[in-house]
Amino acid sequence: MASQGTKRSYEQMETDGERQNATEIRASVGKMIDGIGRFYIQMCTELKLSDYEGRLIQNSLTIERMVLSAFDERRNKYLEEHPSAGKDPKKTGGPIYKRVDRKWMRELVLYDKEEIRRIWRQANNGDDATAGLTHMMIWHSNLNDTTYQRTRALVRTGMDPRMCSLMQGSTLPRRSGAAGAAVKGVGTMVMELIRMIKRGINDRNFWRGENGRKTRSAYERMCNILKGKFQTAAQRAMMDQVRESRNPGNAEIEDLIFLARSALILRGSVAHKSCLPACVYGPAVASGYDFEKEGYSLVGIDPFKLLQNSQVYSLIRPNENPAHKSQLVWMACNSAAFEDLRVLSFIRGTKVSPRGKLSTRGVQIASNENMDAMESSTLELRSRYWAIRTRSGGNTNQQRASAGQISVQPAFSVQRNLPFDKPTIMAAFTGNTEGRTSDMRAEIIRMMEGAKPEEMSFQGRGVFELSDERAANPIVPSFDMSNEGSYFFGDNAEEYDN
């Protein structure tokens, strides 16, 4: 993207840094990872977990959730003011799984939030270390993106479920800051804005008074975040219109849905970061690795190297396929839920299948599930090659597409044709070009129609051997075009429920 120079890199967003050079960025990201790792080690000690239990991804998720809940100030305040039966607002906890007599047992633990905050700050040299908290939120978000298709949420806001490739980060909490905003897809931002506008339509006082002023500035800020994701002048001009509207209503909703559809071809720039579970960072720190000293990046080879040398386990339900569970977590670790499966298959070195073909449910185990038949197995999170994460949407291309997802959002900077089903997408653009945004709409449609099938995206960008740390010898991959490109292809993934 041309304006790259004016933006802070995501590592800076990730670490609240002012302008830093590459070495400083690597050190501050490393410091953040160190903090998460030290916190995780301490929690495993508190909970008396064995090494194996500490490497269980379900335990990692519970521990991450506990610290996120302990620092969720708004919710904590709300819980104190609106006490609900049987919930102690000062405590947080969740299921911890232990191996007892050759069987997995679930144990519900409860801790004072104050105590968890103390352990977290102690692991982070006394700081609140917001960057580390956001990092864990993005890992949870990436896992949700890989596990669930947001059909219901899309339909509720009037969008087409086939636009799911635009929904990265749709389950990120509001408090995820600049680093969170960077990884949100165009569809996620559109959905947040539509929800806001709908509230304004239904509630006369939404934009009024002292609160209304705050609401208005939040609305304009979200519009600017979305505008910054678009790469064409016409899309940005249309966002200006939406932002400046005196009284946002149905016309703005129409414009936003139009823009979301246009992003299936004229893709937005959305950041991709490899955020790993805390149970990967903990053992690495415990083994003596100093992330701050060595430096770390979320968008280069580092996460690949770390996963190459990590042992992570997962509980497996009786009829689940461990290899499929591994694929789910591998995609989440690489922030690749909406990437082209052919690119992923090449990088991973084994075939990556669409969601609907995987015999696996989510990673988390519900409290009512029976533990008797639970097994555990090693997650295979290694890769054959590594590639640089991208934040450009890439230019655009036609490809055989599917009944489910009709476009992709690249996660890796790797040369390819970008699949999208042009006739299906263009069919949504018939007729409606009147109104105050008509010239911009016409211009956007013209650009979409001009998108050429034979153009290559990320020209000359390749993948790298894991021994090639400096990215000196790019390998331009070859793809098996007979395979499906979309992950949520004609899909039956479970729906995400809060």
Rank of each mutant, 00 (worst) to 15 (best):
Y52P: 00
G86M: 04
W386H: 08
M191Q: 08
R75Q: 11
H140M: 11
F338L: 14
S274K: 10
G93K: 13
R382H: 05
R204T: 08
T433E: 01
I301P: 13
D51W: 13
V363P: 01
Y148H: 03
V476L: 04
Q415V: 15
E369K: 12
R389F: 02
M191H: 02
A337Y: 04
E469V: 05
R400W: 14
A178Q: 09
Q398P: 02
R152L: 04
R19W: 10
K113Q: 15
T390Q: 14
F39W: 02
S478K: 03
R106T: 01
L341Y: 12
P95K: 07
T23W: 08
R150D: 10
G394E: 09
N498G: 09
S245W: 08
L276M: 09
S367K: 06
V155F: 02
R195E: 10
L166F: 06
N370D: 09
A179M: 10
P248C: 01
C44F: 04
V100N: 15
F304W: 12
N144T: 06
I41L: 15
V408P: 09
A260E: 14
V100F: 04
A153C: 03
N321A: 01
A284T: 14
N432I: 01
L306T: 05
P248V: 00
M374F: 10
Y40I: 09
L381P: 14
V329S: 15
G485V: 05
S383W: 10
A70Y: 09
S245F: 08
L79V: 00
L344N: 08
S335I: 03
V299L: 05
I63C: 06
P410Q: 01
A411V: 14
E375S: 02
H135G: 06
V299T: 03
M43L: 09
N205I: 12
A237G: 00
R261I: 12
Y289N: 14
R121S: 03
V67Q: 10
S457K: 07
S176A: 13
T45P: 06
L47V: 01
E495H: 07
M191K: 03
P173K: 12
A260K: 10
I253E: 10
R38N: 07
K198S: 15
R156P: 15
Q20C: 07
R65D: 06
A131G: 03
L143H: 04
M137V: 07
V29R: 00
C279K: 12
R118I: 01
G356Q: 10
S402Y: 04
M43S: 09
S310D: 09
D480L: 00
N334H: 02
F338Y: 01
I301H: 12
N76K: 08
R204D: 12
R236M: 05
G393C: 10
I347G: 13
R19G: 00
S269N: 10
P477E: 08
L68M: 07
T45I: 03
P83D: 04
E252T: 11
V280S: 12
P354K: 08
L143M: 05
P453D: 01
R117N: 04
M238T: 13
M440C: 15
E46G: 09
C44M: 14
L56I: 06
L259P: 13
Q241I: 06
R174S: 06
R441M: 09
R156S: 13
G435I: 14
A337R: 08
S176T: 09
I445Y: 07
Q399D: 13
K77D: 01
M13Y: 00
E244Y: 10
A263Y: 09
M222H: 13
G126F: 05
E252I: 11
M331Q: 05
N76D: 08
G435H: 11
S376C: 15
A178F: 10
M374C: 14
G30I: 07
C275E: 09
I406P: 05
R75T: 08
A401Y: 14
K48D: 08
E244L: 07
L56F: 03
S262E: 10
F479C: 04
D372C: 15
R199G: 07
